[in-house]
């Protein structure tokens, strides 16, 4: 604010027009006030006690494990998928790119329903898994990982696809003239070049997985220790009238998100 006034250059009115300033402040308030409210109402005295309670620690452990697993899964599948979208030359690529990004705008609950229909015991793939291997996914920790990957992988794919597109392909050409196979070129030239993009995408993916709620509760349910992650724990706390607990969990998640987003904002904006 003060900067907007003092940075006025000679001959130019650099003040922010009121017409822009007022709605900007309203928007800012809309985004920040609820979070500030949480901090205001937080039971700071009971904080350590609540944070170290069994249910929170269990949920935290589960959240970190599942979000990390979902991120690993997303990197292993998402990087090759991003490569395909960026470099592949096949019909329907635009359609495929659209499909991959659908989970970004789809309500996660719908994602959960879709997962249930596909992987549920009566589902197309789930039924086969059940008959063939006796495997049942819904309401297991595996279902949590799958839900998180479904919702979070598109973030990684978009970031990495941008990095692949931004990478100078002439390096790959030079590597090829030096006798490198396509796989060697990918491993030793392309991948190192897009590594910052992969790292950014993975962190974003992890953060999104950590906050996943809708798909998880639909497809995996809310069982303490196996599927009840931090957001579900907060939801349960609210339902049980334990506002203090809900606030503590919320603040915890907000801090993690802020740290990650502030650290990545520059890169994320650039990648887009």
């Amino acid at each position: 604010m003060s900067r907007a006034r003092t940075s006025a250059g000679p001959g130019a009115d650099r003040r922010v027009p009121v017409v822009l300033l007022v709605p900007a402040l309203v928007g800012l308030a809309l985004l920040v006030v609820p979070m500030a409210g949480l901090a205001w109402r937080a039971p700071w005295g009971r904080f350590p006690e609540l944070l170290t309670s069994d249910s929170v620690l269990t949920a935290l452990r589960l959240s970190v494990t599942t979000a990390t697993s979902a991120t690993v899964l997303s990197v292993l599948c998402g990087v090759p998928l991003a490569w395909l979208l960026a470099r592949g030359d096949f019909p329907g690529r635009a359609l495929l790119r659209g499909l991959v990004t659908v989970p970004l705008v789809l309500p996660p609950v719908i994602g959960g329903v879709a997962l249930l229909v596909a992987f549920g015991r009566q589902g197309v793939i789930g039924g086969w898994l059940d008959r063939t291997f006796g495997l049942s996914l819904p309401f297991t920790t595996g279902a949590v990982v799958l839900s998180q990957a479904f919702v979070a992988m598109p973030y990684l794919v978009i970031a990495v696809e941008g990095a692949f597109r931004g990478a100078d392909r002439r390096y790959e050409d030079v590597a090829a003239t030096l006798g490198a196979s396509a796989w060697t070129v990918f491993r030793r030239i392309t991948l190192p070049a897009v590594l910052p993009g992969v790292a950014a995408g993975a962190v974003l993916c992890w953060a999104r997985a950590l906050g996943e709620f809708g798909a998880t509760i639909t497809f995996a349910g809310s069982f303490p220790g196996t599927t009840r992650t931090l957001p579900l724990e907060a939801y349960v706390a609210i339902g049980a009238g334990d506002t203090d607990m809900a606030i503590v969990l919320s603040l915890m998640m907000i801090v993690v998100s802020v740290v990650i987003l502030v650290g990545l904002r520059e890169r994320w904006v650039n990648v887009r």
Binding site: D168, R170, Y171, D173, V174, A175, A176, T177, L178, G179, A180, S181, R188, I189, P192, A193
Partner: peptide
């Protein structure tokens, strides 16, 4: 390209930035 035994040197060299000089040459 990889089976041709044709060497390529371009204007901006395109050295592999994440490798050392000797790793570039040994590539």
């Amino acid at each position: 390209a990889r089976g041709r035994r044709v060497g390529l040197v371009v204007q901006d060299y395109l050295l592999f930035g994440h490798m050392t000089v000797v790793e570039n040459v040994a590539f």
